[in-house]
Simulated scan of single mutants.
Amino acid sequence: MTDEDKQPQGQGQPTNPDQGNGDKVTFTDEQQSVIDNLINNKIAKLNEKHAADLKNRQAEWEQEKAQAVKTAEKRAKMTADERAKAEAADREKSLDQQRAQLNRKMQELTTKSMLMDRGISADMLPLVMGATDDETTQNLDQLEKYVSQQVQKAKDELMAGHQNPVNGSGNRGNSFADNPWAKESFNLSKQNAIAMTDPEMARQMIAAAKPTGYYVQPS
Rank of each mutant, 00 (worst) to 15 (best):
Q191L: 07
P14Y: 15
N164D: 13
Q150K: 00
K153P: 04
A44V: 04
S175V: 04
S113Q: 12
Q163A: 07
P218E: 13
M1L: 00
S113K: 14
Y146I: 12
N21F: 13
N21K: 14
K85D: 09
K77T: 10
V166R: 14
S148W: 00
Q217W: 03
G173H: 01
E200Y: 00
Q67N: 15
D36P: 09
D3C: 02
L125Q: 03
P211E: 09
W181M: 05
T79Y: 05
A100M: 15
A80Q: 10
N56E: 04
Q191I: 10
A88Q: 10
A80G: 03
Y215N: 13
A52L: 08
M106S: 07
T212I: 13
Q217C: 04
A51I: 04
S219L: 13
R75N: 12
K65D: 12
G119P: 08
N167P: 06
I39Q: 05
L127S: 13
R203Y: 01
E4R: 07
F27Q: 01
E87D: 07
Q163T: 05
V166K: 14
D156K: 01
D18W: 02
A131R: 15
R75Y: 13
H162W: 07
Q32W: 15
G119R: 08
D117S: 14
D3K: 09
Q98P: 14
Q163E: 10
T137N: 13
M114T: 06
T212S: 15
L38Y: 04
Q32D: 15
M159F: 02
T28M: 01
M106T: 10
D134F: 07
L140E: 00
T132V: 02
E60H: 09
G170C: 06
D36F: 12
E200M: 01
L188E: 02
K145I: 07
D3R: 11
A72C: 02
L102E: 11
I194N: 01
I206M: 08
A51H: 04
N171P: 03
K112E: 10
A52F: 08
L115K: 12
K49M: 00
S169V: 13
G119C: 08
R203P: 02
Y214P: 08
V69P: 05
E135I: 04
E4S: 06
M159Y: 00
E144G: 04
P211H: 06
P17L: 02
S33V: 09
E62T: 14
N164I: 10
D134Y: 13
Q163D: 08
I120S: 06
R75F: 11
N40P: 01
S121Y: 11
Q98R: 02
T79C: 08
Q67F: 10
F176K: 13
G213D: 06
G10F: 07
Q13D: 05
E73T: 08
R118E: 14
V216I: 14
R104T: 12
Q11Y: 08
K45D: 03
Y214I: 12
T212L: 12
N37A: 05
A160R: 02
N41M: 01
S169E: 14
M106K: 07
A80E: 10
Q98I: 06
P199C: 03
L38G: 02
Q142F: 06
A193S: 01
D133T: 01
K210R: 15
I194G: 03
